[in-house]
Every structure is written in C-alpha cells, then in structure tokens.
C-alpha cells in the first residue's frame, strides 16, 4: 500500500484513507481528508519530519505519522 511517507519531493498524491485511528482525527481536522490532493514539498535534515502542501497551506508531520496516510498517485 502506498503511503504519504513514500512520496518524494515534488510528487503529488491523493489521500485515500488512514491506518491509525488515533491519529486520523487530528489529521482530518488539519484538512487531510480522503480525496484531497497533497504535494510533498520539503523534508527536514535526515529526511524527517516532512512538509507538505495540503488544502492550500503547509503542514508538517513526522515520517511515521505520514506512513499512516494511504494515498494513490496522481
């Protein structure tokens, strides 16, 4: 299954679901909804955390959190 953590800088994806129930509410509230398009824009030194553009703003999260977001390529 492809997750957000698999994207490389500049790549797009579309959110399809979540694998972690605890985190999913926080992510949903921050605008990571199924069907939303995301672009990976940066990663911090050593590749973690990552920054992405989602619904028009920049959101950052750790790689392990990104790995709970399932995506499909656009």
């Amino acid at each position: 299954m492809l997750t957000l953590a698999d994207l490389r800088i500049g790549e797009h994806g579309e959110i399809t679901g979540f694998t972690d129930e605890l985190l999913s509410l926080k992510l949903l509230e921050m605008g990571c909804l199924p069907g939303t398009e995301v672009i990976l824009t940066h990663h911090a030194p050593f590749g973690d955390p990552i920054a992405l553009k989602v619904s028009g703003y920049t959101l950052t999260m750790r790689r392990e959190e990104a790995a709970t977001i399932q995506i499909k390529r656009k």
Partner: peptide, 9 residues
C-alpha cells in the same frame, strides 16, 4: 501516550 508532531507552518 504516544508522542506526535503534526504542525502547521
């Protein structure tokens, strides 16, 4: 609980 870091820039 688990630690997390989800933040807006």
């Amino acid at each position: 609980e688990r630690s997390y870091f989800i933040m807006e820039l």
